[in-house]
């Protein structure tokens, strides 16, 4: 039973680790990595807690949700990476310009 909560806790920590990396890193590739790790954390919480049915088969609904989530994540990653490459080509730097307003 308690492995359920073990994995869920790991998911929570992964989410927060990703968030931390998203905050402190300036490089866009690292920000994208961080978002992916955050996503994995959420997915882990979703699926781990689905095992609480008390039977052999876990709840399949969160599983389907996570598969959807993984596909969404890879789509977003591909778009983000392309944007990053274009931005780097324009600015010469794979970071967000500090002030883009003027």
């Amino acid at each position: 039973m308690s492995t359920v909560f073990l994995y869920a806790l790991v998911g929570v920590v992964l989410f927060s680790l990703g968030l931390y990396a998203l905050i402190v890193h300036a490089h866009l590739l690292r920000k994208i990595l961080a978002i992916n790790v955050m996503g994995s954390g959420v997915f882990l919480v979703l699926v781990a807690l689905a095992k609480r049915t008390g039977e052999d088969t876990p709840d399949p609904v969160p599983h389907a949700m996570v598969i959807t989530g993984i596909v969404v994540a890879v789509s977003a990653t591909a778009l983000a990476l392309t944007l990053m490459l274009k931005l780097t080509a324009e600015t010469g730097n794979a970071e967000l310009p500090e002030d883009s307003r003027e």
């Binding site: 968030l19 998203l22 905050i23 402190v24 300036a26 967000l96 500090e98 002030d99």
Partner: peptide
């Protein structure tokens, strides 16, 4: 409000989000 003055722009903004 300008990110350049606000130390570390993005970082502070996401910290505020948290």
């Amino acid at each position: 409000g300008k990110p350049a003055v606000l130390v570390g722009g993005w970082s502070a903004a996401i910290t505020m989000f948290v």
